[in-house]
Design a protein around this nucleic acid. Structure first.
Lengths: 240, 240
DNA sequence: AGCACGCTTCGGCAGACAGCGAAACGTTCT
DNA sequence: AGAACGTTTCGCTGTCTGCCGAAGCGTGCT
């Protein structure tokens, strides 16, 4: 027999459910690692305060630390943590803007951000929709209509992406279907899963994308703007 | 321009992050509706206390109410709330057993439960795995190996399920792929999405499954035990 | 060795909040 | 109308916890 039983949802949720801690987690939501002092600045609290918070997040196994000299780099413990955060963002209310700085940050996040390892935000949904236009992905609308649509990669799409330089060998074979997230800001789908991660990685390799000051924020380069229009037919007016 | 900005993850998480409130949400996780007093018993607090909690959960838009005479039936506001809860359960630590009663409840939940509209728990993963054995579903192992596998419904499987009485017309057409959840207890996949919901509904219609005292708990009937073995080849020793 | 730096620990304070019982409110049943 | 019932509101108490500054500890620079 097995000692496992119900899990302590309340404890994790409480760990996430503090404004400072949530800011920390969101700042790390792009999959990057940051030292304690940067996280303190991010959350707008003192170093001693953030230290307590980080200890709590470690205890809840939401974060891991890497020791590097006198620095300590924190990152999300697993992909599942990032997924849980995005899922929570989906059911959360919009947050009123606090400062001018926060406003530009927020706008940048809405424009293009990483959802741990794949592209999200307006850019993410624009790419997803362009991939359908180009018959790279085929949508199969949900029967029940409640956000449970399904996408598959077409043979043509497979060829297209291979030509683009995505290493398709390392992805699920045959009639692949495709994972996606419901974007919390756009309420539309963006590409996720292994394919989303691989495509995003390729775009970074081509320098179509660059990391912003914080890893979660992504900037589209001029090359990226041209490339997306030329290769996938993403309309330029959706790249603002 | 759009006033939407970052969302308030902290607020939702805080709403979930109280033991009593989490118990309420989990009790409603099967998609059912319960009156305030039942939820108070469920959480083990007084009626006045639960009333405050329910008000908070309503304010956070995690629940909705239906007024029915002097009763008020609460249920989860959307499927997304249920999804968020399961995602949190996935990253939460196991909870130590408190009472004998809680223990039998927990065991029942591990055996078979509803994940809002589809089957989960040991029974859920057993069915999922049997469906693969029977070539109803084909698994396409993840390239990156981090839980991003993909399943598709085979033509044979489509015929099989149609014969079983699942209304396949109302589901995504053509080369459908299939949504799944990672079961928080088993750490294996169970069938979700429209197909999972439809199959589960059919099993209820056939009286293979019956609701327990609380809707989230599901009981397998004798007919269900036989049917699952005969129709899908689910081994009897996995139905304990 | 000595200093600067990043981070954590400690002590203390103030606000938030879960808990209960009593009372109020509205609905249903007799 | 009156009693029973489900639910919410109110007042109160105790506890928890987020916050800071100061002090402590280990690491790296010079």
């Amino acid at each position: 027999m097995d000692a496992r039983t119900e899990t302590d949802v309340a404890q994790v949720a409480a760990a996430i459910g503090d404004p400072s801690r949530a800011k920390v987690l969101l700042a790390l939501g792009g999959g990057g690692a940051l030292p304690a002092s940067a996280l303190a600045a991010e959350a707008g609290v003192s170093n001693s305060t953030i230290s307590g918070h980080l200890a709590k997040l470690l205890d809840a196994r939401l974060l891991t630390v890497e020791l590097d000299g006198r620095h300590r780099y924190y990152r999300l413990a697993t992909k599942d943590v990032a997924r849980a955060l995005e899922q929570l963002a989906l059911i959360a209310r919009p947050l009123p803007v606090r400062s001018l700085n926060a406003d530009t940050r927020a706008k940048a996040l809405l424009r293009a951000r990483l959802c741990y390892d794949h592209l999200a935000g307006r850019l993410g949904v624009a790419v997803m929709s362009a991939l359908q236009e180009q018959d790279v992905l085929a949508a199969e609308p949900a029967g029940t209509g409640d956000g449970d649509a399904v996408y598959v990669l077409t043979p043509h799409g497979r060829a297209e992406l291979t030509a683009f330089g995505v290493d398709m060998e390392r992805l699920p074979r045959r009639r692949s279907s495709v994972r996606y997230c419901v974007d919390w800001a756009e309420r539309r789908h963006h590409l996720a899963g292994p394919l989303g991660a691989a495509l995003t990685a390729r775009m970074f390799a081509l320098e179509w994308l660059r990391h912003g000051k914080y890893r979660r924020v992504v900037h589209l380069t001029a090359a990226g703007r041209e490339g997306l229009a030329a290769t996938f037919g993403v309309p330029a007016d959706q790249l603002g």
